[in-house]
């Protein structure tokens, strides 16, 4: 089975987000980059499915040239191939993003690869639009299930069984392949890339193309940090000597 995974390059923001002077982006000068944990799980799942059932896995991103780093990371954990849709560095709105991904999937189909399973993160780490997967599925006329935390092939690989959190339990879906699924962290525990994995990743095939960005219909104007908590922590003490003060606070809160 051929599987496609869509990932998005985002900064690792650490303890505090700093914006650029024009307040239209995060100041990433001192930051590393990664992908959403949801998408890491999607890539891991694709690798495991191919290990268990054969086929191939492909990772795709729409992003700046630097996003090759995230594609190589996915190749290092075992994904076979990468597709890089080069952007101008601007963030594309959800409709434009989905359209570019759909065009790439259709080009792949024309070239002989018809992905039976297309995996997304439930939401991108930064923009969190909660919609790329639904749009791609609709455009392809395929079933879509969001927020999946367990996935298994059934019926000789013609159906996929999916679990989604619902209230205190889980809803189960069984949908025919080909299908589009968005996943959440917790689906699996992604492996760390090994050194040989990293070396192999350098030689794995990576195709690029450059789609053109349409005018956004959800247009970001500016970013801002939510008002701070304004809290000033009361230091209860240092080391074990703080225990008495801590218990006094617990008593104030009615816990002791």
């Amino acid at each position: 089975m051929d599987i496609l995974v869509a990932v998005k390059r985002v900064p690792v923001t650490g303890g505090r987000i700093v914006l650029t002077d024009d307040e239209r982006a995060i100041d990433t000068r001192h930051l590393g980059f990664t992908i959403s944990p949801h998408e890491e799980c999607a890539a891991e799942e694709a690798v495991r499915l191919v290990e268990a059932h054969g086929g191939s896995s492909t990772v795709l991103t729409l992003g700046p040239p630097e996003a090759e780093e995230q594609l190589r990371d996915a190749l290092a954990v075992g994904v076979d191939r990468a597709i890089h849709l080069l952007s101008d560095g601007e963030e594309w709105d959800p409709q434009a993003t989905a359209a570019a991904i759909v065009a790439a999937i259709e080009a792949e189909r024309a070239a002989g690869t018809d992905y039976q399973l297309i995996l997304f993160g439930n939401e991108s780490a930064d923009a969190a639009n909660f919609q790329a997967g639904a749009r791609v599925a609709r455009a392809l006329g395929r079933p879509f299930v969001s927020g999946v935390k367990a996935l298994a092939l059934e019926d000789g690989g013609t159906l996929v069984r999916l679990e989604q959190e619902a209230g205190s339990g889980r809803d189960v879906y069984r949908v025919p392949l080909p299908a589009v699924v968005s996943v959440k962290e917790g689906l699996n525990l992604p492996r760390y890339p090994s050194v040989p994995g990293r070396l192999r990743a350098k030689r794995k095939p990576l195709d690029t193309s450059t789609p053109t960005r349409p005018a956004p219909r959800l247009a970001m104007r500016s970013l801002s940090l939510p008002p701070g908590s304004g809290k000033q922590a009361r230091v209860l003490g240092r080391g074990a000597d703080a225990a008495g003060e801590v218990v006094a606070v617990l008593a104030e809160l009615g816990l002791v």
């Binding site: 303890g15 505090r16 701070g228 908590s229 809290k231 922590a233 009361r234 230091v235 209860l236 003490g237 240092r238 080391g239 074990a240 000597d241 703080a242 225990a243 801590v246 218990v247 606070v249």
Partner: peptide, 18 residues
């Protein structure tokens, strides 16, 4: 910066004491 109460120290000393 987001805390109401702070204890500075090794949690392996602080937690058993609490």
């Amino acid at each position: 910066a987001s805390a109401d109460y702070a204890v500075i120290g090794d949690l392996h000393e602080v937690l058993p004491a609490i």
